[in-house]
Each structure stands twice: as structure tokens, then as C-alpha cells.
Design a protein around this nucleic acid. Structure first.
Length: 753
DNA sequence: GATTCTACTTAGCAGACACGAA
DNA sequence: TTCGTGTCTGCTAAGTAGAATC
């Protein structure tokens, strides 16, 4: 019976099975246990709840009810609506006017041009702003039809498409050479939507009926888009700069908004242009048409006294809202999932900064509870109630392997899972206690790990997999993120599964940074910082696709280092030629001369010669291209020959050197001092290149950015830089320095996570 | 209590950009 | 100045979480 393992009966059966106890006894015992657990959690709840209530009271003391609830003025075109939903009403009741002292401080900061929100406590975030003014959003330009000779071909014949359909065909044509366009699901979804658009637009204009995708030829369109790209590349830097300046000028007014009287940056002020949906992994809807968003689809959110931005000519906004309980400036609904897209503030804004700060503080708060939580889940691994065991195992997996919560997903999304949605086939058990996790997580990134787990966890997983369960069945059949999070709230207000990821990431980073000795060059310290960062990224399973030319570029970097070493050895040989007695004085210094074999040396010679030949061929071609363009006399072939003869000379010299071991340096390299200085320079270059190569190899599949941006408390990095004398610019880019300004300006070197 | 909706964070990809070597 | 390469940023997909609704 399937319900056997989903219903209450199964708990008892499991228990009886596991511990050889008669069912009736188990029932009684569990009842007793349940009551015990209930008592405990209730008392916990009460104490935590009272603390939380007290805190909330303090937080809300500033809140002042807004009495006015006027309708915003409708200006003819705009449909201005009141926020009518109950939730919004409740939120509206909390609308505040910030207290005067805070306002004064804002005024002062405004004069300095800076608002340091982290210098004053503001724990209440139910009200996001008092005033909000902005200029709306940037709507993508209307479609411009292709030149008349660029067409889709069907069964070898050019097709006259109406512009609406041509635009959709063009979306596909532009990405003809991408992996997406080669995906059959993508093709099917695209083609279906394309035919529908074509039908609505009245069909082709030259009587051709399009029925089969296979008969469509998009290459002319593809070539045209490639040509446009090429032309864009060919523009002079001055022209490119001008285009950029024009664009920036046009976007300037949308880039900033006025939030509580302060100028703050808006994030994604551009409405997403139409295109084909690029779902990740095996997404059933990939390739579907993302339709053009019209101003009528867009809801703007501003304060009720703010001027309403003008809608594009002939259009009007869908709605104007005045909801100060949310951060968004504009929103619309997309057509593929009917989900909402928002225009929000930029990462460097005060609101985002405060959310970020709170996130890390919450994770830090977990420090005070983690021991109790761990103790509890270890205990509950033996619970007699199946749900409790599932909770315990889930928290264990989330805590130890940094799994995500794993919410339920619908049929029309990619089949990816997290902890609560793990299925039978995602976990393989190898006695005595090894578990192989193999599943696709967020963004269809594979999570593959073969690990040893706690013996009780192993035993429980075995129970969770017991027949009649089979592939396709949920491992945690009684658990979902909501139940799990409710349980976690008992330990700490606001605790949810995702806080564990932040906590463990930052804790790991702190521990790793503590291991770094404060010595060596900045490059070495950076390498160690990156290694610590990489530990966190691996913990969080942050991956990236290896770039196309990676293997080749590693080879090249290795060759480069080998060549530098050869140069150094050559200089050392020359040194001995000038002063042979140095060998006796300092034999260790010259030891490495013996490390390079004749074969290695010959290989390096070959590479250098090859490169030189190529260089002169290129130089000759480039020079003549230029002369041709300027209508000057071309260089004669003899010039190329002359250059290549020089290379030939070098080749002979190397050959001789290899034979005799006698080095012939440039005439300028004629003193011991000069040679020694050059050796030192080479040593530095070799060291730098080696460090960079090591970093490059180790980072090829791991994405460090995601954990740096979202999981590692930025204050850890700030402290590291201060303590180890590493410029913060080496770790945080300009954008990150702006995002983490609160961290950079608020900690000293004694701060700990 | 289950489901849906809303609002937010987290994530990898790809094109733009910057920078060093030749 | 050009070219190649690596880094940065913008974009938007894909999650989480909690409130609202059924």
C-alpha cells in the first residue's frame, strides 16, 4: 500500500521493524514521547516569542499611522488605483513618517552627499520608504524590420514575413549557432510560438505556407546579424565612445531615483526586451517566445505626491501604486509562467545594503544556537516519530553539505531538487556509512558527492528508501521547506534553511582566513585568500563551465614559465662564463642549470624560432595592408627574406649554444651586475606567473564570485585586507566596493564573524 | 492545512570592457 | 595600435520564504 509510508501507520511499522517492539507498545510510547516534545517546544516557543514581541514593540515605537488615504490624482490617461488587497491595507496602516531626528540626520548627510545608514540603528523594515520618486522605466525600442533582401527561406524559397513574425524568426536566426538553437525542445517551442504569431499576423505575404521547422533556413538572417556585429566591432574607439556617451545620457534620468529625499541608484531600469526564453538545463519551456512588454502591462510604484512619469507616446501605464511596504519601483507580469518581474534599486542602495547587513547579522546570530540545534538533531535521529527523524536528517544534510531547502516544482519547470525534494534515485547508499549524492540542483548544476555520513543518518536514509519506495518517490515524504522552517523558528526567530548556507559559508571563510600566516607578498596573500574563497565555493557547489580555450591557455602559460626559466638558466651560464669562480662560492645558486635537459632546451628553441617566423610573416602582411590602403609602394619579398634570415641566424646560434653550452648574450649584457639584476627580474616574473597559473587551474570549474557576493560576510574580507595589508581593490571590484561600503566603513581589524 | 501569490535573494551566462604583450 | 585574453558587469533565470487565500 503506497500510503503505508506516507501515513501514520507507517511510523509505527517502521519503529516496530527497527526495534523489534510490538506495534501497540510503539503507539503508546510515541504518544508519551510526543507529549514530551510538545511541552518542550511550547516552552521554547513562549520564551522566544516573548523576547521577539518585546523587540518588535521597541522596533515599532516609531511607527505613526498615516491618516490620509487620498486617491492619487488620475491624469486622464493613467489608471490610478488604490491598493485594495487586505494585506496591503494592513501594511498601509503601518505607513510612517520618519521621526524628526532621523530626518535631521538625513538632511545633514544629504549635505555631505552620503547617507551612512549603518551608523544608526533601524531594525524595522516593514516600511521601506516615506517618499519615492522616479522617472519610470526604459522601454525597448520598437522592432525595426530587416532590409528587404534578408529573408527566411522555406524549402529553398524566400518568405515574405509580416514584421511581427519576422521579429520572432530573427530571434532564432540570431542564435542559430548556439547550443540553445540546437536543442530540439527549444526548436519545438520556438517554432510553435512562431507559427502562432505568423497566423495571428495573417500568414506570409507571398503565399508560402510554413509547416515544418526542418524546411526553414535561417542562415541569411544569421549572417546578417553577424555582419552587424562585425560592423559594430570595426567602429573606431572614438565612435564607440560617442555611442556609449549618447546611451548614458539617454539613460541618466532612469538610472537614479529619489528615495526619502536621497538620490539612489536603480538596478534594472530597462524592461526586458522580447526574445526567446533561455531556460537552463532540460527546461520544458525553453525556446518559448517572451513577448514584448507594453507600458500598459507595467505597474509603477511611487509615493502619492510624486509626479507620474510620462508614458511613451500613445501609451499609458497599467497602474500607479503607492505601496511603501515594498522595495520595487515597477513591475509587470511575463507571459511564460505568468510570474512577476520587478524593477528594483541597485545593490549599492541603502535598502539593499540594509537587507544584506541583516542577512549576515541573522547568520551570525545562528552562532549562539548552532550547538543546541546540532545536539537536537543528533538526538532526533533516533526519534520514534518518522517526521522528527526526517526533520533531523534534513537539517543534518543542510548543515553539513550546505544543501538548499528544496521546494516543490511544477511539471513545466526543469527537474531540479534540493534537500526536501530529494528522490529515491538521488541518493545511493554504500555500507557501512557512505552516501553518494547525485542530483541536479538550482540552475541544473550537478551536485555529485561521495561522502561518509553519521551512522544514524545512514541508517535513517536506508529507512527512508525502504520498499515500497522506488525511483521517483520522495525521500522525505513527510517534509517540505515550510514544515522544516517552522521547526527551525523554534530555535531562533527568522531562522530558515537558507540561513545555514550563509552561516556555514561565512564560518568556513573565517576559519580558513584564520589559518593564513601574515607573511609573503600581496600576490601570495591573494592566492591564499582565493583558496579560502574556493573552499566556500566548493561547499556551496558554485560551479562554472570551463571556458573553451582553457586547456590551451594552461599549456601556453606553462610554456611561458618554462621559457622564463630557460632564460634565467642561460643568464646564469653567462655569469659563470664571466666569473667561473662563482660556482665554488655559491654552488646552490647554479644548481638549477643542471635541471634543464638538452631536450627541454631544444623544444624551447623550436618554439621561439617558430614564434619569430610567424611574427615576421604577420608583420610583413600587416605592413603591406597598410601600404595598400594608403596607396604606397609595397614592401618587397626581399624584406621578408631579410627578416627571416635574421631568424635563421638566431636558429644557428641556438644550435651552437646547445652543442657547446657556451652562451652568447646581447652586447649590452656585459657586466655581472647587469646580468644579476636581470636574473632577479626573471625570478620575480616566474614567481608571479606560477602563482597565477596555479590559481587559474584551481579556479577553472569553480565560481568564486557567487559566494563572494552572496555568502561570505564582506566584513571578513575587510578585516583580512586591513590586517594583512592587502588593498581592498585586489579583492572587491568597484561595484562590490560600492555594494559593501557599509562593511568597508564599519569594522576594525578585531571584528570577527 | 494546502495552495497560490508576492517579494525578495541567489545564480550562471554572455557580452562589454580593460589591460598587457607584441 | 592591434590583438588576445581575462575580468567585470548586466541580464535574467531560478531559487527561498512567508503571507494571503481557498
Amino acid at each position: 500500500m503506497t500510503t503505508d509510508y506516507q501515513g501514520r501507520k507507517r511510523d509505527e511499522a517502521d519503529e516496530a521493524d527497527e526495534e523489534n517492539v510490538p506495534l501497540s507498545q510503539v503507539s503508546k510510547r510515541r504518544k508519551l514521547k510526543n507529549e514530551d516534545v510538545k511541552d518542550e517546544s511550547e516552552s521554547d516557543d513562549e520564551s522566544l516569542a516573548s523576547i521577539f514581541k518585546k523587540k518588535s514593540k521597541e522596533k515599532l515605537k516609531k511607527v505613526k499611522l498615516e491618516e490620509k488615504d487620498e486617491d492619487a490624482t488620475a491624469d486622464g490617461k493613467e489608471t490610478v488605483k488604490k491598493v485594495t488587497k487586505t494585506s496591503k491595507k494592513v501594511k498601509k496602516e503601518k505607513k510612517t513618517v520618519k521621526d524628526e531626528s532621523e530626518q535631521d540626520q538625513n538632511d545633514e548627510e544629504e549635505e555631505n552627499g552620503e547617507y551612512k545608514w549603518w551608523e544608526n540603528e533601524n531594525e524595522d523594515d516593514s516600511i521601506k520608504w516615506t517618499t519615492l520618486k522616479h522617472n519610470g522605466v526604459v522601454i525597448p525600442p520598437p522592432y525595426e524590420p530587416l532590409p528587404s533582401h534578408i529573408k527566411l527561406y522555406y524549402d529553398g524559397k524566400p518568405v515574405d514575413l509580416p514584421p511581427e513574425a519576422e521579429e520572432v524568426a530573427g530571434f532564432y536566426g540570431a542564435m542559430l549557432e548556439t547550443d540553445h538553437a540546437k536543442n530540439p525542445v527549444f526548436q519545438k517551442n520556438f517554432f510553435q510560438d512562431f507559427l502562432e504569431v505568423l497566423k495571428t499576423a495573417g500568414g506570409t505575404k507571398n503565399g508560402i505556407t510554413i509547416e515544418k521547422f526542418e524546411k526553414c533556413d535561417f542562415t541569411k538572417m544569421f549572417d546578417y546579424f553577424e555582419l552587424l556585429k562585425e560592423e559594430k566591432k570595426k567602429l573606431t574607439s572614438q565612435e564607440k565612445k560617442q555611442i556609449r556617451l549618447d546611451r548614458e545620457k539617454a539613460e541618466e534620468k532612469y538610472k537614479f531615483c529619489e528615495l526619502d529625499g536621497r538620490k539612489e541608484q536603480v538596478g534594472n531600469f530597462k524592461v526586458e526586451p522580447p526574445g526567446l526564453f533561455r531556460g537552463r538545463g532540460a527546461h520544458p519551456k525553453t525556446g518559448k517566445l517572451k513577448r514584448r512588454v507594453q507600458p500598459e502591462d507595467i505597474i509603477l510604484n511611487l509615493d502619492k505626491d510624486a509626479p507620474i512619469p510620462e508614458a511613451p507616446e500613445g501609451h499609458h501605464w497599467g497602474e500607479i501604486r503607492n505601496d511603501n511596504s515594498v522595495q520595487w519601483l515597477a513591475m509587470w507580469r511575463e507571459n511564460i509562467f505568468n510570474s512577476v518581474k520587478y524593477v528594483r534599486l541597485a545593490a549599492n542602495s541603502s535598502l539593499k545594503g540594509q537587507s544584506d547587513y541583516k542577512k549576515f547579522e541573522k547568520a551570525r546570530q545562528l552562532k549562539d544556537h548552532i550547538d543546541a540545534i546540532r545536539k537536537d538533531y543528533k538526538k532526533q535521529l533516533k526519534s520514534e516519530v518518522m517526521l522528527e527523524r526526517q526533520k533531523a536528517v534534513a537539517i543534518y544534510l543542510i548543515d553539513v553539505f550546505a544543501l538548499r531547502a528544496g521546494g516543490e516544482k511544477s511539471e513545466d519547470e526543469a527537474d531540479t531538487v534540493g534537500c526536501c525534494s530529494l528522490r529515491y534515485e538521488h541518493v545511493t547508499l554504500k555500507p557501512p556509512n557512505t552516501v553518494v549524492f547525485d542530483f541536479l540542483g538550482k540552475d541544473s548544476i550537478r551536485f555529485y558527492q561521495e561522502v561518509e555520513v553519521d551512522k544514524k543518518v545512514f541508517k535513517n536514509l536506508k529507512i527512508f528508501k525502504r520498499p515500497p519506495k522506488q525511483p521517483g518517490h520522495q525521500l522525505f515524504d513527510r517534509l517540505d521547506p515550510s514544515t522544516l522552517n517552522k521547526h527551525l523558528q523554534n530555535y531562533m526567530p527568522g531562522l530558515s534553511a537558507k540561513v545555514f548556507r550563509t552561516y556555514n559559508a561565512s564560518k568556513t571563510m573565517q576559519d580558513q582566513l584564520d589559518l593564513i600566516p601574515n607573511e609573503g607578498s600581496v600576490a601570495e596573500k591573494l592566492l591564499r585568500y582565493n583558496a579560502a574563497n574556493r573552499t566556500v565555493a566548493i561547499l556551496c557547489n558554485h560551479q562554472r563551465t570551463v571556458t573553451k580555450g582553457h586547456a590551451q591557455s594552461v599549456q601556453k602559460a606553462n610554456d611561458k614559465i618554462k621559457e622564463l626559466e630557460w632564460q634565467k638558466i642561460r643568464l646564469k651560464k653567462a655569469l659563470l662564463q664571466l666569473e667561473p669562480e662563482r660556482l665554488k662560492k655559491n654552488p646552490a645558486y647554479f644548481e638549477e642549470i643542471e635541471d634543464m635537459t638538452k631536450e627541454d632546451e631544444a623544444e624551447i628553441h623550436r618554439r621561439i624560432i617558430e614564434r619569430e617566423i610567424e611574427k615576421y610573416h604577420k608583420k610583413f602582411a600587416r605592413e603591406n595592408d597598410k601600404r595598400k590602403f594608403e596607396k604606397e609602394e609595397l614592401l618587397p619579398e626581399s624584406q621578408l627574406k631579410e627578416w627571416l634570415d635574421g631568424v635563421d641566424e638566431l636558429k644557428k646560434q641556438y644550435k651552437e649554444e646547445l652543442k657547446t653550452g657556451v652562451v652568447e648574450l646581447k652586447p649590452t649584457m656585459n657586466t655581472v651586475e647587469k646580468i644579476e639584476k636581470q636574473i632577479e627580474r626573471l625570478d620575480n616574473r616566474i614567481q608571479t606567473n606560477s602563482i597565477q597559473l596555479k590559481d587559474k587551474e584551481e579556479n577553472s570549474q569553480v565560481s568564486l564570485g557567487t559566494s563572494k557576493i552572496n555568502y561570505i560576510d564582506p566584513r571578513l574580507t575587510v578585516v583580512f585586507c586591513k590586517k594583512y595589508d592587502v588593498p581592498i581593490e585586489k579583492i572587491f571590484t568597484k561595484t562590490l566596493r560600492e555594494k559593501f561600503k557599509w562593511a568597508i566603513e564599519s569594522v576594525d581589524e578585531n571584528w570577527r564573524f
